[in-house]
């Protein structure tokens, strides 16, 4: 399995011999953070982008300025990209295929006569 880092933002990026290397080291001294915003109460936090910041606290402040200038959120999460573990596109067959043949997990798998109400 490839080693996974999130350098570059917008979700973790797998690296390893089977993934073509992206050239150029990231030389910014500040770590990359992924930013998640809760749009309003009752909604999940959603990934909105990334930014560089010297520490967690500054990352929250920067995220506030960059991603919520117009009341786009009521809560912000920031997480260092390097701390995200992600599935790799190379293993997507093994990872997601098993659910493909379990059609009985979907409500449409079951035939119910039309005149049965509320089902």
């Amino acid at each position: 399995m490839s080693e996974v880092i999130a350098e570059g933002g917008h979700g973790a990026v797998p690296t390893g011999p089977e993934v073509p290397a992206v050239p150029g080291p990231v030389r910014s001294g500040w770590p990359l953070y992924e930013v998640f915003v809760r749009g309003k109460r009752g909604l999940n936090h959603v990934h909105v982008g990334s930014l560089h910041a010297p520490d967690d606290e500054m990352a929250v402040h920067a995220a506030r300025d960059l991603y919520t200038r117009r009341n786009e959120g009521v809560s912000i999460w920031v997480v260092r990209s390097a701390d995200i573990t992600a599935s790799s596109p190379d293993e997507k067959d093994e990872l997601f295929a098993p659910s493909g043949d379990k059609v009985y997990r979907h409500p449409t798998f079951y035939d119910i006569p039309e005149n049965v109400p509320h089902i």
Partner: peptide, 18 residues
């Protein structure tokens, strides 16, 4: 802000904004 969104997108391609 627009510049930052775009540099952030560029960095997903393995380049560094500095």
């Amino acid at each position: 802000g627009h510049g930052m969104y775009l540099y952030s997108a560029a960095e997903t391609l393995g380049v560094d904004r500095a």
